[in-house]
């Protein structure tokens, strides 16, 4: 167990008081390593809250730079950082909030060539990207590297969060159990045509952060095998059951996908926007 400094005891006191966390739980968090794909709308609250919680190492991958259209929701960044690589901006914000956190930055695209090696050293992967090919890539890589994945998505006023860890939860699905194939191009409206409510990004991302802390501490009920959906206009949270698909091409009985494949771009815009 970690020998807390006086400052750490002060900083994490509200965590340590919780019976489900305690000194042991806080130690665990400080020793955990979480990798995030995307430092945008979902990534912002995730990074913020994981840093606040004292997750010892946060890795962030994003190839993009800060743009003023991001600031409507990507609260990790600010006016002064327009033009700066998002991962750098993220690091600055995180360290200002909590110097205990080590930030590893990956200012490039994650692809089938680099992702497995990158995520290998991490305990948990959080997906906040905005395009299907990357989602499939991340899902497949997590499956092969046996890493739990907390996936978030949003569209206009609706958000979704799910946890995929079929290597641990034998009845739990992977992302492909839901969507075996990326949708054909043109079916999904490109991001610039699909607006998004900023605070929705905050809601969904914060749920991802809560789930991440629970996953790291091993407490509460996991969202594995569940899909949490939020309809902001109706103010309705729902939890749906997701079943493992025995015919899933990745995690099913007769899996056809046995290694990472090349993931086609489905979105017209540059990857990395979220």
């Amino acid at each position: 167990m970690i020998d807390f400094t006086e400052k750490q005891i002060e900083r994490y006191s509200r965590h340590i008081i919780l019976p489900e966390v305690g000194a042991e739980g806080q130690s665990k968090l400080l020793e955990s390593k979480v990798f995030m794909i995307g430092a945008g709308g979902l990534g912002s609250p995730v990074a913020y809250y994981l840093a606040a919680a004292g997750v010892g190492t946060i890795g962030i991958a994003d190839a993009d730079v800060v743009d003023s259209s991001n600031l409507q929701r990507q609260i990790l960044h600010n006016e002064d950082r327009i033009g700066m690589p998002k991962v750098e901006s993220a690091r600055e914000t995180i360290q200002a909030l909590n110097p205990d956190v080590k930030v590893n930055t990956y200012n490039y695209f994650v692809t089938e060539d680099n992702i497995r090696e990158i995520i290998r050293e991490y305990d948990l992967i959080i997906d906040g990207c905005d395009n299907f090919p990357t989602r499939f890539l991340v899902n497949d890589a997590c499956y092969f590297e046996k890493k739990p994945l907390i996936s978030g998505a949003m569209f206009r006023f609706e958000g979704q969060v799910a946890t995929y860890k079929p290597h641990v939860d034998k009845e739990g699905p992977c992302y492909r159990c839901l969507y075996p194939e990326p949708p054909p191009t043109g079916l999904v409206p490109s991001c610039s045509e699909a607006g998004i409510l900023g605070a929705l990004a905050g809601s969904v991302g914060t749920i991802q952060a809560v789930e991440a802390v629970k996953e790291l501490l091993g407490i509460g009920d996991s969202l594995s095998g569940k899909l949490m959906t939020f309809d902001a206009l109706r103010m309705e949270w729902k939890k749906l059951k997701l079943r493992k698909d025995p015919g899933c091409p990745l995690c099913g009985e007769n899996a056809t996908i046995t290694d990472l494949v090349t993931y086609e771009q489905a979105c017209e815009l540059q990857l990395g926007h979220s």
Binding site: M1, F4, I9, E10, S13, R14, I16, I17, G22, A23, E24
Partner: peptide, 14 residues
């Protein structure tokens, strides 16, 4: 409070 409780917990934990 609550640092006294926190510190007692930290001491007891191991």
């Amino acid at each position: 409070c609550p640092m006294n409780f926190v510190k007692t917990k930290i001491k007891l934990s191991p």
